[in-house]
Simulated scan of single mutants.
Amino acid sequence: MRSIAIVTDSSAALPADFFAEATASGGLAQVDLPVSIAGQPLESLSSAEIDAAIVTAHVQGEQVTTSGASPGELIEVYERLASQGYAGIISIHLSGALSGTCDAARVAADMVQLPVAVIDSENLAMALGQVVMNLYRFTENTDDLETAVEVAEDLCAAVKLFFFIPTLDALKRGGRVAPALAMVAQMFQIRPVATVLDGKLIYLERPRTTPKAIERLTELTLDFSAEQAKGSHRFAAGVPAPTGRVVAVHYCGNLLQAQEFQRSLGEPAKDAELLPLPPVLSAHSGLGALAAVVY
C-alpha cells in the first residue's frame, strides 16, 4: 500500500478515467470548489447538469460565482486519509493568487496529526491536473514525503497553460476584472490571449478578432512546445520528463472549435485529452474559451 496520499481540488480537470482508477485504487482525494448561479448553489446537480446550467447562465448574462474549499472540508479529507493508514499527504491546489483554497489547506494542515505538505501549484486546469497525475504515480513507489514534495515543485515548474477568452463579460460579472477594463475590451473588441505566470493571469496579446486570437494561441503553444522538447528539465528517477507534448485542450461550450484547434496544433497535440473546463473555471471564462496545456 502506498504511504503518501494526494489531495487536490476540482479545478484540476482530471480526466475521468484516471480519476476513477485512482480513487478506486486509493491515495487520491479531490475537494469540490462550489459554483453558484445568481446566488443558488449547484452542488445538488450532476456534472452534466452543472455544465449545462453554466452555459445557460452565460447565454442569459447571469452572474456565476465560485468559492474555495473550507478548512473544515479539508480537515475531514485529511482525517479520512489518516484513518485509512496513510502516513503523509501532499495537498496541491490551484493558484493561491486566484483562490483561497491553499490558505484553507494550510489552516487545515495545522489541525491534523499526520504531516500534510501544502503546495501552491501556481496554475489551474490540467496544468494542475498533469502535475497531480505524475505525482500520484511517483508516490506509488516512495514513502519519502520530502522527496515527493520536491518532485511536485519541479513538476509545477515544467508545465505551461495558454488560453484564449473571447470576452471579459463573465469575469466582470463574477467580480474577477474591473468593469472599466471589461468595457474597454468590449469597445475595442479585444480577445485576450494569456498564460499563468507565478500564479497570476498574464495577458500576452490582445488580438481584435477571434481567428487572430486562436492563431496566436496556436503559435504561442507550439513555440513553447518546441522549447520544452529540447529537454532542459531533469527529474528524479521514475518521473516522466517533459517532452513538449500538448497534454490537454480545454474548451467551454465550443467542442467543435476545440477539435479544430487541436488539429491545428498538429503532431504535438495528437494524443491530447480534449476536456471541458471544470465548472469552477468555466464559471469565469465564459463561452468560447480555449486553452492548451504543454508538458
Rank of each mutant, 00 (worst) to 15 (best):
L220Y: 09
T195G: 05
A213E: 01
A213N: 02
E227W: 09
A182F: 13
A213T: 08
E227Y: 11
T209V: 02
A178P: 04
Q228Y: 01
F224P: 00
R206T: 08
V184H: 07
G238M: 12
G199T: 13
I214N: 01
D198Y: 09
S225A: 14
F188Q: 10
Y203I: 15
K212V: 02
Y203R: 06
P192Q: 06
E227T: 11
E227H: 12
I190E: 00
H233W: 14
F224R: 14
I190A: 03
E215K: 10
K200S: 12
A194T: 02
V177R: 12
Y203P: 11
L201M: 13
F188E: 07
I214R: 06
H233R: 11
T210C: 04
R208H: 13
F235Y: 09
R208L: 10
P207Q: 05
V177K: 10
F188T: 15
G231I: 11
T218P: 01
L204Y: 09
R191C: 11
R176V: 09
G231K: 08
A226Q: 06
Q189A: 14
T221Y: 05
E215Q: 12
T218H: 03
T195E: 07
R176E: 11
L197W: 04
F224Q: 10
S225C: 09
F188G: 04
V196F: 13
L204W: 04
A237F: 02
M183Q: 15
R191A: 02
Q186Y: 09
K230H: 08
Q228H: 06
R234C: 03
Q189T: 13
T210A: 13
L181V: 15
F224N: 03
G231T: 05
L197C: 10
R234N: 08
Q228T: 12
L197N: 14
S225E: 02
G238K: 08
K212H: 07
K200R: 15
L201P: 01
V239L: 10
E227R: 13
T210Q: 13
R216Y: 05
L197D: 14
I214P: 00
V239G: 09
A185P: 13
A194W: 00
R191G: 00
A194L: 11
T209K: 03
G231S: 04
H233P: 01
E219N: 10
A236K: 15
L181M: 14
V239E: 04
T209Q: 01
K230S: 08
I214S: 00
V193Y: 01
T218R: 13
L201Q: 04
P211N: 03
A185S: 15
E215S: 11
H233G: 00
R234T: 14
S225H: 05
A213W: 03
V193W: 01
Q228W: 04
K200M: 10
F224W: 13
I214D: 00
F235I: 05
P207T: 02
L217I: 06
E215L: 01
A236H: 14
T210Y: 05
P192V: 06
